[in-house]
Structures are given as structure tokens and as C-alpha cells.
Amino acid sequence: MTSPAPVFWRGVHHLALVTDDMDATVRFWHGVLDARLVTTIATDAFRHYFFEVAPGMSVAFFEYRDQPIETYAKPAGVPYERAAQFDHLSLGLADEEALLRLRDRLKSFDCEVTDVVDHGIMRSIYFTDPNGIALEASWWTDDATGRPADHADQRFFSDPDPVPAVQELIADGRVRTTPRTQLVDEVTKDLYKPPATD
């Protein structure tokens, strides 16, 4: 077997998480963390909003419509049986050629992979790792990161009924209110407390 072409990764394209309140999510990620909202996508089934954490890289959230999601809070690094906030990880590639090369590489290793899916602002392929973790490889066909956001640009802000926080960004260029958050201590009890001294 000939060695498949190498993959030239460009970091994490986006990490896809799940929220049951997209408005609060926008207010926190854009308003508190200063991770600019760069793209909104909406279908009849979900909203999918992207926040820039570095040029070419984003953290994205799904808010499913008419689908109750049981929420919870979990501290980092502590096992928890209900941990289901994660949706998928998308790794970044440079262009269509790199995407096709990776798709062919996965097939050469007898791994199932989708055909290229055109999302308008990005193109992607989907596959899983041996643990069943949903993975995506994507390249921005029109990169929304690394430039000023134009909230009126329908290429990037295509949700026809955006949450109130996005309406505030369109009107004022900022969110008017942000949510308060707190550490989780019920599961870990004393994990975050400093050790006792003798």
C-alpha cells in the first residue's frame, strides 16, 4: 500500500457544544469572554452560532428547537455520568484540496466518511474516532474570523430570527446585559478549596 498524502492541519476549526439558551450564550461568549460572534446559521431544527477564539478558529453552539435538553453543571476534570454538553469537534484545513485529500486518506484506512457537505460559509466532511466521538474537518470558504464582523452580512448572519443578544449587536454593536456565572461545587465539594495547612 502506498503511503497516503500527509494532512496539513490548521488547528481547531470549531468545537461544537450544546446550549438550551442561545441568548444567554451570546451574552456570555461575546459580551463577557469577548469571543466575537462571527456567524449565525439557522434551520427549522436548530440554531448554530460561532464565536471567534483565534483567526480561523471558533467555539460554536447548537440550540435545538422544540427538543428539550436536560442541563447540568459539571466542573472541569471531574467524571460525571450526565456529561453530554459536547456535540462534535471540527478540525481546520486550508482549502478544498486538503479536505478532499483527508477524505481520500480516511477511505484508504477503511474509515467511513461523508461526502463533502457545503454549508455556504464552510465545507466539511464528517467521520468518527474509535471512541465514537463525532469529528468534522472543515475549511472556511469565506472566513468570518480575523476581520470586523458585519452583522448585516447575510453570508455570515443568516439566522432570520436571531436571539435578542444578536439583535442588540446589530442595533448597538454590543450586548446590553450579560449573565452571572459561578463555579460548580455540589459534585466536587472541596476540590477547588486550598489544601489545609498544618
Results as ranks from 00 to 15, higher is better:
Val117Cys: 04
Trp9Thr: 14
Ala76Phe: 13
His13Leu: 04
Phe62Gly: 01
Met122Arg: 06
Asp118Met: 06
Tyr49Arg: 03
Asp185Pro: 10
Asp87Ile: 12
Glu136Lys: 05
Val26Leu: 00
Ala84Gln: 15
Val32Glu: 03
Ala94His: 08
Phe46Asp: 08
Trp140Leu: 02
Val7Lys: 08
Ala60Leu: 00
Asp110Cys: 08
Leu91Trp: 15
Thr181Ser: 08
Leu15Ile: 07
Val78Gly: 10
His30Lys: 04
Gly92Thr: 06
Thr178Cys: 08
Glu96Met: 11
Gln85Arg: 15
Ala45Glu: 14
Phe28Leu: 10
Pro179Thr: 08
Tyr192Arg: 11
Trp9Gln: 12
Arg101Phe: 13
His88Val: 02
Leu169Pro: 05
Asp87Phe: 13
Met122Ser: 14
Ser90Gly: 13
Tyr72Ala: 15
Asp95Glu: 07
Gly132Phe: 05
Pro4Ile: 04
Leu37Thr: 04
Leu191Tyr: 13
Leu89His: 03
Arg103Ser: 06
Ile125Glu: 03
Arg27Trp: 01
Ala149Leu: 00
Arg82His: 11
Ser124Pro: 01
Phe46Cys: 12
Asp118Val: 04
Gly120Leu: 10
Leu93Val: 06
Phe50Ser: 04
Ala144Asp: 01
Arg176Ala: 14
Pro164Glu: 05
Val32Tyr: 04
Ile69Arg: 11
Val163Gln: 01
Asp44Asn: 11
Thr177Ser: 12
Lys189Leu: 15
Arg103Pro: 03
Val18Trp: 05
Ile133Asp: 06
Asp153Ser: 00
Phe157Thr: 01
Ala149His: 00
Ile133Val: 13
Val187Arg: 14
Ser138Ala: 15
Asp104Lys: 13
Thr2Ala: 15
Ala98Glu: 09
Val113Met: 03
Gly31Thr: 05
Ala83Glu: 14
Leu99His: 01
Thr43Asp: 04
Phe28Lys: 02
Asp172Ser: 11
Ser3Pro: 13
Ala165Phe: 00
Ile69His: 06
Glu96Pro: 01
Pro75Asn: 11
Val166Asn: 06
Gly92Ala: 12
Gly120Thr: 08
Trp29Cys: 05
Ala54Glu: 09
Ala171Asp: 09
Ala24Cys: 07
Glu70Phe: 12
Thr71Trp: 08
Trp139Phe: 15
Lys193Met: 13
Tyr49Val: 03
Gly120Lys: 06
Asp20Gln: 09
Leu33Tyr: 07
Glu112Val: 09
Lys107Thr: 08
Ala165Val: 02
Val38Asp: 01
